[in-house]
């Protein structure tokens, strides 16, 4: 699961600085998944990966360096899943009467346990009778929050705008607000100055997560997607159409100016120019000054 989330983030990060009109998302997507599997410790060989996708290994590897460049070589993605597990662990500890409140909050484990029993129920449900129901409530909240993190958090820009801890706490806020409030009360004292600020941020984040598109497109969206795909085929950057060929050419002749898909004559002329400027720079009085008209 983690590598999928990482791959989605790779895609998002890559298209921050690159246009889908230059690089087709379909090609980059394969590479993103492959790279994410490497980064998240679930490595599969290119061959087996390509076999499953029914593509050539070259088509996956062609854009690999491009993608790493687009990511500026930052492969680490901080996910909120770990944090959610930590929070769930603590909630269970509170139900057992063993959970310690945060250092700034003076509450004994017994008090927090009783508070938990007193907690207002989620909308549409009756108040919990015993601690077992609270445990079940925590478990359902945990499951739902995880589901939200797997879908809405990845489909929106939330990863760019909120820290992982804010992300998972806002999913908890969506799923079970009284529980989230109780949990944050055990963490932050009532007098804390950042508390209202944190709550506003969590609400903003929750709003963003609620507005996320559905994981499966409906009919109208599918229609729109088809239209966009057709349009994209017509207006793609012709120089970057065949990434495999560019990659091959670059491997054959690394001097070809970064494999821009330039014609041979252009590359040759640029090479000559570069050599000439090198020669001039070794001249006693330096190279010829560039004319202002450029």
């Amino acid at each position: 699961m983690r590598y999928q989330a990482t791959a989605v983030q790779y895609l998002k990060r890559f298209y921050l600085t690159n246009s889908p009109m230059t690089y087709h998302p379909k090609e980059i997507m394969q590479t993103a998944v492959y790279l994410a599997m490497k980064a998240e410790d679930t490595f599969h060989s290119v061959r087996s990966f390509a076999e499953k996708l029914d593509v050539t290994t070259e088509s996956i590897l062609a854009s690999e360096f491009l993608l790493t460049q687009g990511l500026r070589f930052t492969f680490d993605v901080r996910h909120p899943f770990h944090g959610l597990e930590g929070g769930f662990m603590e909630l269970l500890a509170f139900t057992n009467g063993k959970g310690e409140a945060g250092p700034g909050v003076k509450k004994s484990p017994k008090e927090t346990r009783e508070e938990m029993l007193d907690m207002s129920p989620p909308p549409g449900k009756s108040k919990a009778k015993d601690i077992k129901e609270i445990v079940i409530r925590c478990q359902t909240a945990h499951g739902k929050a995880k589901e939200l993190l797997k879908t809405s958090a990845l489909l929106t820009d939330a990863y760019f705008l909120y820290s992982p801890s804010q992300l998972w706490l806002s999913t908890l806020l969506i799923v079970d607000e009284p529980l989230a409030r109780f949990y944050l009360d055990t963490k932050l004292p009532l007098t804390s100055e950042v508390k209202p600020k944190i709550f506003t941020v969590l609400r903003q984040c929750a709003e963003m997560l609620r507005s996320s598109p559905a994981t499966q497109p409906d009919k109208e969206e599918k229609k729109e997607l088809k239209r966009i795909q057709k349009k994209l085929e017509q207006c793609r950057n012709p120089q970057k159409l065949d990434l495999v060929a560019i990659n091959r050419a670059q491997k054959r002749d690394p001097d070809m100016n970064g494999g821009d898909g330039l014609g041979e004559t252009v590359a040759k002329r640029r090479k000559l120019e570069r050599e000439q400027s090198m020669k001039e720079s070794e001249d006693l009085f330096g190279p010829v000054l560039a004319d202002k008209k450029g």
Partner: peptide, 18 residues
């Protein structure tokens, strides 16, 4: 594992990116 998850749970909670 406890240390890591608890750290991840609250790392950056008071960090307001916008």
């Amino acid at each position: 594992y406890y240390h890591r998850t608890m750290l991840a749970a609250f790392a950056g909670l008071g960090c307001f990116i916008d």
